[in-house]
Design a protein around this nucleic acid. Sequence first.
DNA 1: ATCATCGTGCGAGAATTATCGAACGATTTG
DNA 2: CAAATCGTTCGATAATTCTCGCACGATGAT
Lengths: 112, 112
Amino acid sequence: MTPARVYEHPETEEIAIPRVLFALSEPLRLSMVRMLAEHGEVDSVELGPDLPRSTLTHHTSLLRESGVVFVRAEGRKCLIRLRRDDLDARFPGLIGAVLDGYQEAAPAREDA
Amino acid sequence: MTPARVYEHPETEEIAIPRVLFALSEPLRLSMVRMLAEHGEVDSVELGPDLPRSTLTHHTSLLRESGVVFVRAEGRKCLIRLRRDDLDARFPGLIGAVLDGYQEAAPAREDA
DNA sequence: ATCATCGTGCGAGAATTATCGAACGATTTG
DNA sequence: CAAATCGTTCGATAATTCTCGCACGATGAT
């Protein structure tokens, strides 16, 4: 039952604002975070069903290394969830402001 | 008295979150914004006294085009101020969270 | 055991961004 | 007017980042 893939995550105190902001500055990653905020923990493939797997890994790794998401292996797939508590503890209100602002800024995106 | 240099600024509604986050994801630009938040309106050269002017223009232009700062010409120099009200109106709490988080994340920076 | 499926690492190429010197126009000073 | 100063633009180069095909090890199903 020992998960094969083990992921490195920065400690809460190690999470740095510039890296977080950069991770969220990419529209694709921002939409991923938005989905993660709505649903709790999602399969990685749901974050980008039409994306090449290597591209998906690239973005999820960046989100993970910046401290935005937590990744864990479950069998063959990998599950991802937002580190909401850690982020709120370190940067109170940041994620909430970003999600609220993004929702208002880019409401319609159901077409693609 | 007509200012020679005229700067383009995005409207408040045009300010997009990804661009703002990207602008703030650069440590240098983030320190600029931090200074702008403390002091009201500052001379552009104060944002980076040791930087080449072309590099300084590059960063200030990026901050301006993303809607983070307002730039105006005053004689030979150019004065820059944070668009705090516009940013707060569009993305409530975002700038505050970024500044608070950054202050806590990188407290000591009085040496340079 | 065999095979299909999944995520990852590697590599290459494209795209974006960062840095900075040099030339230019505009402005202030002498 | 002439000289000094300022910010901007342009161009080139370096540094990052993005995208994606491919091979590989691990996992689950037959």
